[in-house]
Design a protein around this nucleic acid. Sequence first.
DNA 1: GATGAATGAGGCTTCATTCAT
DNA 2: CATGAATGAAGCCTCATTCAT
Lengths: 193, 193, 193, 193
Amino acid sequence: MSRGNTRQRIQDVALELFAERGYEKTSLREIAEHLGVTKAALYYHFKTKEDLVTSLFEDLVLGPADEVITWAEAHQPTSLETKLEILNRYSECISNAFPLVRFMHENQAALRELSIGELMKQRILTLLELIKDQDAALSDQVRCASALFTMHSTFFTLQGTDADQEEKRKAALEVAQDLVTAAHHGAGSPSGT
Amino acid sequence: MSRGNTRQRIQDVALELFAERGYEKTSLREIAEHLGVTKAALYYHFKTKEDLVTSLFEDLVLGPADEVITWAEAHQPTSLETKLEILNRYSECISNAFPLVRFMHENQAALRELSIGELMKQRILTLLELIKDQDAALSDQVRCASALFTMHSTFFTLQGTDADQEEKRKAALEVAQDLVTAAHHGAGSPSGT
Amino acid sequence: MSRGNTRQRIQDVALELFAERGYEKTSLREIAEHLGVTKAALYYHFKTKEDLVTSLFEDLVLGPADEVITWAEAHQPTSLETKLEILNRYSECISNAFPLVRFMHENQAALRELSIGELMKQRILTLLELIKDQDAALSDQVRCASALFTMHSTFFTLQGTDADQEEKRKAALEVAQDLVTAAHHGAGSPSGT
Amino acid sequence: MSRGNTRQRIQDVALELFAERGYEKTSLREIAEHLGVTKAALYYHFKTKEDLVTSLFEDLVLGPADEVITWAEAHQPTSLETKLEILNRYSECISNAFPLVRFMHENQAALRELSIGELMKQRILTLLELIKDQDAALSDQVRCASALFTMHSTFFTLQGTDADQEEKRKAALEVAQDLVTAAHHGAGSPSGT
DNA sequence: GATGAATGAGGCTTCATTCAT
DNA sequence: CATGAATGAAGCCTCATTCAT
């Protein structure tokens, strides 16, 4: 019945529970029980609890995000079109790893103590740097940060809605792109004048 | 030096530590040690750990938010101007209780298991209902949710900046108001056409 | 029934079990069960298992040994008579803390990983330096080390004997003093010629 | 590269780690990792952890010690010269198995729970019986025990020294023989008179 | 000869909480 | 108002060991 897929099954259940109940509240005992295995079995596949959560990010989101960053850095200086394409590509990463992104969004405090949290934060800050202008008005900087956050949070913000995953992705992407477009044109400063 | 203000001091330290290290990672022992008191002393002032965190929300954010909601519900049906004023008032609540909002934002998973978390979520959803149109395009619904999230997260998003608290508040408010304005005018649907 | 003496009772039982079954083999569960308390109660009185064993050495042997060292260092350069008096005083320390010394002797490997082990080792090496001549023949250095070891191990070496504690102490002291006397007179080098 | 010598390699690594970190603190995982094998591989060669440590004593020290005992028992009643020759022969056993003797000396508490520990203890007590007089003065019994302990511990007592193994062996042997000689002549009793 | 996968027992430690004083 | 002492539950993790392949 169980071949070489136990590692995968552990990751699946862990992701589900982490997203559902939070990182700290999810114990390895719970994960093991959901799987019908012993706690010790988890330790055969993952060195620590942190190692387990780290593997989720590495397998689902870190690689894809790095691809976006690599692509973006090859297209500098960053035109508006490039920025919009960054958002587009990033929205696809996120959409594919949606429960993990939800987990990341809702457990920032817990992730801060994990080394993978630091790595993810760096990726997001790097994306932010690529999207915003260093010396833009404050409100335009907010627009760019907000664009990223919007994509991170939309999938579960729109939980009640009957829209499907792809519709949500497009809606979030549209809003994010509008925000970045406005920031790019310096919507912030003229309104201040 | 310290008279009957112990309760206050506990809240201050608790808020600081909760915001810094997260709800689950902050133990009552830590809080007590930071205060130079015994754990048991905390229990004289607060029935449980949950009671302590609840008191923070009640004292700092729940009341003010309810005032905004009460005001908003008295001004229905909601015109664009009303919506913008809701955002304005809410941004002031948030600005005053800034570390608690950060805590809320970064500990959503933990708060989900606490009854105060449910209460706060209701408030935010109520505000969202007042701001968005029930049958707006999906992207416009995202805009309104994003407006709220943007205000929640801006204060620590802009951590590195040298802007002061009030400047940040205004920048976040501007972005939020733009988003809601766009949503109000149905920016979403035409772009779909 | 139990007033402020719980800490003491924990130490007593811990010493007994540590000496009986070794440091690593003695679990805090066992100690707690022997006392009719919870494991958590131990942690109220001692921060860790290492802290518990450390307290034993500090309370029973470290202080007295330091007194011997202090006395010895005040009587430098060290005449033979002084050396013999060092042995005499040290034998009394040891005799009073006899089960702990047995524990130390039989758990050197375990103690090497504990910081108190390092401290105790330093004390013994210091005593050794005071007793032996830096440039004595190899066999005389062995004599001095042996003198110390002999006192450490005699109490349980002579376990079967019906002699009482004080007789054993005197016998060990006599042998140790003979060894140091021989070393002092350079018994080693002439026999080599 | 490695043919049928895996068993030997396991023993080598095990001895090294046991001596370094102690019996309890050394896990089979560690041993396996140092060898670049799986834990399960160890179980192909040794039935249990105890079996592994037992094999070390059997191969390195038990046989040679038994030879000494056999020789000694054939030379009863034991003259002083015989006693000195026992020490001489035993010192050679020990010198050859030096890390294992260090291990034995520093892990007495752990060995007490192992059947091989009991066996080794018996050998040493047997040697002690052969060396000392049943009804000697207490101090002379201490001398004989001390002679044995001295040889056990000298190799690592003299760790800092630049003397080579054989010089250390001779120094320890000299001290041990002096002690036994003194005991044989009843140095203890006249001093009591 | 050796591995991959798993187990059951048990280790140390921390936590929120209680209660007599 | 607050402490000292303690508890019960649970946490993460490691260990020696087994067994099918």
